[in-house]
Nucleic acid binder design. Structure first.
Lengths: 343, 343
DNA sequence: CTGAAAGCGCTTACAG
DNA sequence: CTGAAAGCGCTTACAG
């Protein structure tokens, strides 16, 4: 049972492969195929269940109709849902999408980009890792369409869709200050990524603007790669050493999750002993008792904006060098973990 | 800046394309290429950063080195992590993977399978929807490798990796009975999928084996597609109408999440007023107060078993018709939501 | 030990 | 309005 080809269709209809190809590619009108011929071709295509061979088309045109999605971790709530929406939108536009997780590792990210390049993807959506600048610049130089999502690369001007991390962090900190908290601990990871530095800047500026003091006792940084257990221990230790803290700001949702475990470990009650807020929402924060106040990323908006931008670049409606960035505003969702502070 | 091809490499070395191809495909020894020639070729390939054109290779060999992963929802914890592991394993074996979410919709699933077929994937890992039997049988007839994951299709013998839903459900119910609960409500979705029917059977048999009575008051079924709000209302109503219930068994983790919201809505306290257990773990259940007892799916084991099985079928080490199913045992993780019942 | 050549299934410039 | 033919970049049977 051999697959049917354009040749088979053409032969059965006593016409040429050219005609069949024009019909398939919607060029009948432009190339002046008669409606009668067009119908004959379409009918037989349907009857024989003919589908053009994508490899042949790809070889001939150089376009694979495939996109590459490189995220930090497809198994996490944020990126999993980003991926779902991107895949649906890509599909609507005739694209399939390859995906891969970098686990925030430079070498993995580089390998994945090159692997996908060998499969000739038509464009990328990339969650950059810290040392990815050269690799991404290479894409730019070779004129391969891409869009950065969720995080920028310092000193690299390009197309991106990111969250306004500074503003979200500033507003979330301000929310705590307005509710009477004065000794706020900011717990983040060691990172040069602007995503992290912006969140820290937003926190610091909100504190200073609120007339509050800042010392190193307000900051804890942990290693991203550290195991859950060791991170929880670090946080617990920090809490034990800084008993004057009345609120905690976790810079990512997985830090928040670990932080909540750490608080249980040292027997601190949220929100009676200490208030808690976190950057990034997830199901858990909504349903925990108490529920957790967050700065939430509009996932749907970020995903659709980035795939639309990538398709525009691929279709050359937007130049790769045009540097049209989208900065999405996060939303502060006030929940039970940050009530007005009791006197 | 044109991409370098095998022809360029051959010309520069004054050798033939054949020789270059043999070297690239590791056939030097078998075809008797001299070590000196082989080294010359390899060095130039590295120097010119040559990568074989995948489209040409695909057209010629009929193999795309691409797999299709069709899951219910890549954005959910279980499938997102399944996807991550499958992608990593596939990559190790030289495959890229396309993914798509069915949202448990038959038409979407059929469309996705056919779309991927047109991109000539070499094999599929599929989370079946209820009406997917014909489509999957077609794959079988055309000898296209695939493995079902997470759920079977009734009356269809094939390769699969699933959870032992019956045993997990039986054991989880038994755990409640041993702890003194007698009026247990089983909350599930309308579904013909064996996954669901097995869970219900496990529950019912454990109840009967425990000498407990069963009536329709022990069962609530909701629509999968129903919105969160309407599902929560249904559950809340069920609870109000069945005040004698002392424990709830949620048949999936998203039902568990909604159920917890419903319990808050009708002011029932876990575990003082009512115990709760759920099938499928997630981060939330571990961190909620109280934490939730679950039957947990070994995600890593399910993912690796399924990709290994698919690769075996592709490499013809296992026949598609061989029907080698793997049934993975779930683990009961006892947490705070199901203590011994107070007198 | 190595090379010339056919052919995978398309698209498209060219010819009529 | 439609067709014959080149060519995309590989793999591999065949020849020597």
């Amino acid at each position: 049972m051999k697959k049917v080809s354009m040749k088979d269709i053409a032969k059965e209809l006593n016409t040429s492969i050219t005609t069949v190809s024009f019909v398939i590619n919607g060029k009948s009108a432009a190339m002046g195929i008669s409606p009668a011929t067009e119908k004959k071709v379409r009918d037989l295509i349907k009857k024989r269940e003919f589908n053009p061979n994508s490899a042949a088309r790809m070889l001939r045109t150089g376009k694979s109709k495939t996109l590459g999605l490189i995220v930090e971790d497809i198994g996490n709530f944020f990126f999993g849902n980003i991926a779902k929406i991107i895949e649906i939108e890509a599909n609507k536009n005739g694209y399939n999408v390859f995906f891969s997780s970098t686990e925030n590792n430079d070498e993995t990210a580089k390998r994945l980009i090159n692997k996908m390049r060998n499969s000739s993807v038509d464009g990328y959506i990339i969650t950059a890792t810290q040392g990815l600048k050269d690799e991404v610049m290479k894409l730019g130089k070779e004129n391969i369409p891409f869009v950065l999502i969720d995080r920028l690369i310092p000193d690299l001007e390009t197309n991106y869709v990111i969250l306004d991390n500074y503003q979200g962090s500033y507003n979330l900190t301000n929310h705590l200050i307005e509710r009477g908290y004065k000794n706020i601990g900011f717990i983040s990871i060691y990172s040069e990524m602007t995503m992290m530095t912006e969140r820290e800047k937003g926190f610091s500026n909100a504190m200073l603007d609120g007339g509050l003091q800042l010392s190193e006792k307000n900051f804890l940084k942990v290693q991203f790669a550290a195991s859950g257990a060791s991170t929880i221990n670090h946080i617990a230790e920090f809490l034990s050493n800084n008993t004057e803290l009345d609120a905690l700001f976790f810079a990512t949702n997985y830090l928040g999750v670990m932080g909540i475990e750490a608080l249980q470990k040292v027997n601190l009650n949220i929100p009676n002993d200490i208030a808690v807020v976190s950057f990034d929402d997830n199901d858990l924060f909504r349903l925990l008792t108490p529920s957790i106040t967050v700065a939430s990323q509009p996932i749907h908006e970020m995903a659709t904006k980035s795939i639309e931008m990538l398709l525009r670049i691929i279709k050359k409606e937007q130049r790769l060098t045009e540097n049209r960035g989208e900065v999405i505003k996060p939303e502060i969702i006030v929940r039970e973990s940050s009530p007005f502070k009791k006197a």
